[in-house]
């Protein structure tokens, strides 16, 4: 996310075109997660450690490269109200008066839902998550699939970062994602690996964040640092609720081979 935020910002700043920024961010994300994919898929490194190392690399590299960008602003994405739809009372301004990336996020959810659950490729994707052995036996390369989707996922996370720097704040700041990448991980757990529930969760989390800002802006005497804890505490709370439920035998739907490195040699 951070590398996406940074690279998107710098490209937009130099070219003046935010779309080019988003595109760059995507490919930077793909490149970085290719490293992660190499370490965790090919070398069989522990995925948590590899992910953590890649995260630290991104944090360091983006802050080093982004030093000159601090304090600059870009025009970035402006609000583009959708004609007619944005005139709908209440729902209009809430849903249809945003920058283009927000609309893309709507579309992406639908697209992914269709892709994951209604296409052959989606089936392969789910299969490789459940059991790479079976996928390999089917004559598909589990390794190639894992590489591909890890990289696509990394690219999407980077675009999420680019949203922060291009649309949300329109500037670059060191460590600006403030742990959102990790919250996203919690979201996936919250959503039990289902994109539709993930969206629900994302808006819920966003709501908590927005509420915190609103309360702050309303000028209560409630101390800021305590407010800032809320999204994180909320994450833990949600995770707890999910885990308690799971313990009762409901909703056990995590991919079977999650976090397990796969090697043809080791197949048993």
């Amino acid at each position: 996310m951070l590398m996406g935020a940074f690279s998107g910002f710098s490209v937009t700043y130099t070219t003046g075109d935010p779309w080019l920024g988003v595109l760059t961010a995507f490919f930077v994300g793909v490149a970085i997660s290719a490293v992660h994919a190499f370490l965790s898929v090919s070398v069989g490194a522990n995925q948590v450690v590899s992910g953590l190392a890649v995260t630290m690399f991104g944090t360091g590299a983006s802050s080093l490269l982004g030093r000159k960008m601090i304090g600059l602003t870009v025009k970035g994405f402006g609000k583009v109200p959708v004609p007619f739809l944005s005139d709908i009372p209440v729902a209009g301004p809430v849903l249809f008066d945003h920058d283009p990336l927000v609309y893309i996020s709507y579309g992406l959810v639908l697209l992914l839902l269709w892709f994951i659950f209604r296409t052959r490729h989606g089936l392969n994707l789910r299969a490789v998550g459940e059991s790479p052995v079976v996928v390999d036996a089917m004559g598909l390369s589990a390794v190639r699939l894992r590489y591909f989707y890890t990289m696509i996922g990394g690219g999407m996370a980077a675009v999420g970062g680019a949203y922060l720097s291009l649309a949300y704040t329109k500037m670059w700041g060191e460590g600006m994602s403030a742990g959102r990448g990790w919250i996203a991980v919690a979201l996936v757990i919250f959503a039990v690996w289902h994109p539709a529930r993930a969206v629900l969760g994302a808006y819920l989390f966003g709501g908590v964040g927005a509420m915190q800002l609103r309360i702050q802006a309303a000028g209560t005497s409630f101390p800021t640092p305590i407010m800032m804890m809320m999204p994180y505490l909320f994450t833990i709370l949600v995770l707890l609720v999910i885990s308690v439920k799971k313990g009762k035998g409901i909703l056990i739907d995590a991919p079977g081979a999650l976090g397990v490195p796969y090697s043809r040699e080791d197949r048993t």
């Binding site: 490194a45 450690v49 190392a53 590299a61 802050s63």
Partner: peptide, 9 residues
């Protein structure tokens, strides 16, 4: 950070 970050070990 870069130095330590590149190495998952």
């Amino acid at each position: 950070r870069e130095i330590r970050g590149t190495e998952p070990g």
